[in-house]
Write a protein that binds this DNA or RNA. Sequence first.
DNA 1: AGGATAGCCTGCGGGC
DNA 2: TGCCCGCAGGCTATCC
Length: 277
Amino acid sequence: MPELPEVENVRQGLLSAVVGQTVSRVSLRRPDVVRGKKRPADLLKGQMITRVDRKGKQLALVTEMSGAGGGVCLCVHLGMTGSLRCHDPRKPFVPDGHTHVVWHMANGSRLAFRDPRRFGGIWTFASTDDLIEQRWSRLGPDALMIKPTQLHSGFRKTRRVLKAVLLDQSIVAGLGNIYVDELLFNCRVSPVRPACELDHKQVQQLVTRMRRLLDRAIRSGGSTLRDYTNAQGQPGGYQFSHKVYGRSGQACAQCGGLLSNATIAGRTTVYCEQCQE
DNA sequence: AGGATAGCCTGCGGGC
DNA sequence: TGCCCGCAGGCTATCC
């Protein structure tokens, strides 16, 4: 469930907890969560974490410079149930069966990657340039950065419906099922509307409202439905502001009619047939 | 080749 | 009470 607002909250929590810390030991309890070519040296052992970057729903733990183009880095994708949690040196921490990687820091704190469903994973790169070229270049612009012209050109090159296009990370990176439904309701636009039908003014409004929605969700700590917590283990509060997600059969906040539930683009979708055209 | 669909994986909740 | 099945969903692979 971690979408952009949740991942951004995790990123911000990691800034204070692990940036500047040196990794003294890495415990790889479940090797297959590290995808692609993995070298133990690439799991950051002996290196100092200097940055935590994000694009869309993906994070990067970056270490100090090593050759051209930036530091060695790990790309972490949380998938549906993945989490990155920091554990205080003074408190006991017993990794359970779903804790796949533990980074032990020189100051005694630990960073744990846990992911019961294992839709997430970790990718290793020799430099941030490699990460960008080999992986992040496949993503569209980040949802907080995208310009209306960029989204509009993404819309015009397909015949798919809005729901499918907004979920497509190669068009815009960071939205998932929750925030797409919330955004479409916020804009009063139907999820089954072909994306290519929107004119520039409508796309502009979509981008404006997308940024505002995501900003508010970030400031609320993201949405916690079941699993999500930030890097410090605290839940978010934006689930209390959801207008449509998870509210099928309940009253529309705008017209009072019943919210509909349908499978659109293979995803459960909640929307108001009356208000969203 | 764009687009739809299956499969990955576990936990939980509804229904019998 | 307990079991089984359906569902949740981001992303990749596969097929049409």
